[in-house]
């Protein structure tokens, strides 16, 4: 069988065909709201973030200190054993300079880019990374392997969320001269 011998289905429309009502369509917005329970391990993680601390969970069989913390070790398939505090510093494992929002719209010229990064947290086992954003940094000077430190919200403003850390900033060098314009964050 050759594809060229068949009349293929799929009738292409343009957005304007829909906007102008050239074909019948139905618009609908689902009204769904969620309240996701934090659970045991993440509940404590968020509580400690509110205290300005990063906490991990250790499995005494494989010895891994895991972040985000979890009540069971997915490798040893057993309950984890103890809580371990980590430092609020780490290393950039990889990063991106993001020019678009989730809906594919562009971040307007002059507004800060989103600077997502995977950060390996000091005190957790090697390779244990979390997703966060970088800030107070010149985007062109971000490097993989760069040491970074958490920048916390003021104690009274923390609410037990990953965003209690506003962003991670470079420990030294690569810092922005002017602190007026912040990159990263939301």
């Amino acid at each position: 069988m050759e594809l060229g011998k068949f009349k293929l289905g799929g009738t292409q429309l343009k957005q304007s065909d829909i906007d102008r009502g050239k074909v019948l369509t139905l618009a609908q917005t689902p009204d769904l709201e969620y309240a996701w329970d934090d659970g045991v391990a993440i509940g404590r993680y968020l509580e400690e973030l509110k205290n300005g601390k990063i906490i991990a969970r250790k499995c005494n069989k494989c010895g891994r200190i895991m972040i985000p913390p979890r009540m069971f070790c997915e490798l040893c398939w057993r309950a984890t054993d103890e809580w371990v505090y980590c430092k609020d510093t780490g290393t950039v494992n990889t990063y991106s300079l993001c020019h678009v929002n989730w809906d594919a719209s562009r971040i307007p010229e002059g507004e800060p880019l989103h600077l997502p990064a995977l950060i390996h947290i000091d005190g957790a086992s090697p390779g244990m990374g979390i997703l966060h954003v970088l800030g107070e940094v010149d985007p062109d000077r971000i490097k993989i392997g760069m040491k970074v430190k958490a920048v916390w919200k003021k104690p009274g403003e923390r609410e037990g969320s990953i965003t209690d850390i506003m962003h991670f900033k470079p420990l030294r060098a690569a810092r922005k001269k002017s602190k007026k314009k912040k990159s990263g964050g939301r």
């Binding site: 969620y34 678009v100 997502p116 990953i162 939301r186």
Partner: peptide
Amino acid sequence: FDHTTEQALDPTLIW
């Protein structure tokens, strides 16, 4: 993305 530890950062798939 994990609803509690990642979604609050407004991640996008492209990240």
